[in-house]
Amino acid sequence: MNEQIIQVKDLTFKYEPAKNNTLSSVSFAVNKGEWLSVIGNNGAGKSTLALLLIGLLKPQSGSVFVCGMPLNEETKWTIRRHAGIVFQNPDNQFIGATVQDDVAFGMENLNMPVEDMRQRVTEALELVGMLEHREADPSRLSGGQKQRVAIAGVLALHPDLLILDEAFVMLDPRSRRELLATLKQLRAEQGLTILSITHDMNEAAASDRILVLKNGSVANSGLPADIFSEEMDVEAPFSERLRRLLMSKERRTPESYLTESEWIQWLCK
C-alpha cells in the first residue's frame, strides 16, 4: 500500500547563477494511483518543477525519485518510459508529419511490434476523439485539436505516471470533462498516477490532493476541501466563492467548504 511513485526532497533550482532561486527546497511525495493537482500563480515555478521531474532540467541540489529510481543521467531514459508529460504549449511537442505518426513517434524506442504500435495509436486517438483526424498535419489543427493530439501521444505510451502541464486549457468544457473522466477510469483500471498543473479550480477540487506553490516554495498541501477553507487567497471553485461572497455580506452560510450538491441540500434544510 501507499507505494510512492514520486519523491522529491529539498529540490532547489535556478535558471541563471546570478538570479534568485526559481524553486527553493521543494519536498513532497505522490502515492501510486493518486491524483495530485499543483496550483500557484503565474511564474510560481510549476512548469519548472515538471521539467525537473523528468530530467529535462538539472537541480542545483536536492533529489528526485520517480517510479522507485533516483533520477540521474543514467536513469532518466528509463524513467521517461514510465512517466509521460504533456507540455504547456502543444506546438513544442509535434514531430510527426501526420497526427498518427506523431502519436506513434513516442513509442519508437519502446521496441514493440508495429502491429501493437498501430493498435495503441488507434486506441489513444479514439480516447481523445481525434481518430478521424489521424491523417491531418498536426501543425494545421485548431488549438483544442492540437492539445488532444499531444495528450494522445502520451496516453499511447501507457505511462505509470502522467504529468499534465495545463493540458486542458484549450478544450471546450465538455471535452475537458470527458477527458478527465477517461483519465479517472484509466487510473481505476491501471493504477495510473496523475500530477496535473492547473489553474482550473474545479479540476483541482475534483482531485485527491492539492499542492500549492508560491514563489518557488510549497506553501501548503492537503485535501481540496481543506486547501480551499485554509487558503483564502487561493481562488476557490464556484460553491466556495458563493460561500465567501455571502459571508462578506454577513448572511447565513455553511460553516465550511461544501460541494455544490451539499450546498443545495444545505439550502433546502
Binding site: 500557484g40 500563480n41 503565474n42 488549438g143 495545463e166 484549450m170 489553474h199 479550480m201
Partner: peptide, 13 residues
Amino acid sequence: LDEPTAGLDPSGK
C-alpha cells in the same frame, strides 16, 4: 482575443 485567459492564474484572469 483568442482564448486570452488560457494559462492565466485566476487573479490575472
